[in-house]
Simulated scan of single mutants.
Amino acid sequence: MQIFGVDIGGSGIKGAPVDLDRGDLAQKRHKVLTPHPAVPDGVAEKVKEVIDHFDWTGPVGVTFPGVITDGTALTAANVDKSWIGTDIEKLLGDRLGKGCPVTALNDADAAGVAEMNFGAGRDRKGTVIVLTFGTGIGSALFSNGVLVPNTELGHLELEGHDAEKRASSKVKEDHDMSWQHWAHRVRKYLAHVEMLFSPELFIVGGGVSRKADKFLPLIEGIKAEIVPAQLLNNAGIVGAAMTVRKAMSG
């Protein structure tokens, strides 16, 4: 079975049909740049461009960088604040047409769902936290495999700032930090999250997870196991498609 997944990010919008039996992309993903300002109409047009690239007709799962309840954005991170209060499922569903009903969810939750089913969290029980390091820090919290949605742990306070303003991979790039320096900040962040939730496992995702060998060995003093995500930057697309199937099955 295939369902289309789209991952909306602060810098790029990417998507592809997903093979839900394998938990992997059925075709090479297509990516376009996120418009700036990233207002709803502009982003919706770019989502349509990604889907039209594949001549896709059928259900679509879409991730969004913010809290989503009943298809509506309650917050907006790294996109325009005019998204707040927008019914994402209606906006994109109307833009794509009746042949493409839309299911929307938080981007980190989508990545987490994919990792828990097909990646590093497969068959893991207890408390598992998936963290995506990118433009910001996204989080997905699982208790015995069940998602607790919209946790937004990237906005925990760390040294007087939003944690993602201290430890995202964008901060590393913007300030040209060494891996050692950045890993020190990530360790402080993980220690804070561990103090609050006592997870058995941290799964580190986002684009930077491709270079996990550069920084994970530098992170010491954390009791929980720390492993890199396995689906890397495709996790959001896969998780979005999986969420559609779950919604269809009731």
Rank of each mutant, 00 (worst) to 15 (best):
G138A: 08
D176L: 14
G61H: 09
S198A: 12
R95S: 13
E89Q: 13
E194S: 11
I226E: 00
L20M: 11
K170A: 15
L156K: 07
G58P: 05
N106Q: 08
G5I: 04
K46E: 15
G136E: 06
V171S: 11
T57F: 03
K14H: 03
T69S: 14
G250L: 02
P40N: 01
D19P: 09
I237S: 01
V18G: 04
A104Q: 02
G119V: 07
P17R: 07
G112R: 02
K48I: 05
L141D: 05
A104V: 07
T103L: 08
G85E: 03
I88S: 04
G10N: 09
P149Q: 12
G71N: 07
V39P: 01
A16V: 04
V208P: 04
I84V: 15
D80K: 12
F54S: 02
T72M: 12
L218G: 02
A76L: 04
V32P: 01
K46R: 15
L156H: 11
V148L: 15
E49V: 09
L131T: 13
G221S: 08
E159P: 00
M248Y: 00
S178V: 12
L20Y: 08
G5L: 06
C100N: 15
V128K: 01
E225M: 04
L20D: 13
I88F: 07
H175Y: 14
A76H: 02
F64S: 05
D21F: 08
A111G: 11
D21W: 05
K14F: 01
K90I: 06
W56N: 02
E157K: 14
G93W: 04
W56Q: 01
G10W: 09
V67D: 00
A240I: 01
T151F: 04
P40W: 03
P228Q: 00
S82N: 14
F64I: 04
I137V: 14
D87T: 06
K125Y: 06
S11Q: 07
A212T: 08
F118C: 07
L74M: 14
M116F: 02
K31Q: 14
L153I: 13
D80N: 14
E152H: 10
G205I: 13
P17E: 05
R187P: 00
H175K: 15
P65I: 08
G61A: 06
M195C: 12
D87I: 02
D162C: 11
I137G: 10
L201S: 09
A73S: 10
S168V: 14
A38S: 12
K214N: 05
T135M: 10
H155P: 10
V43W: 02
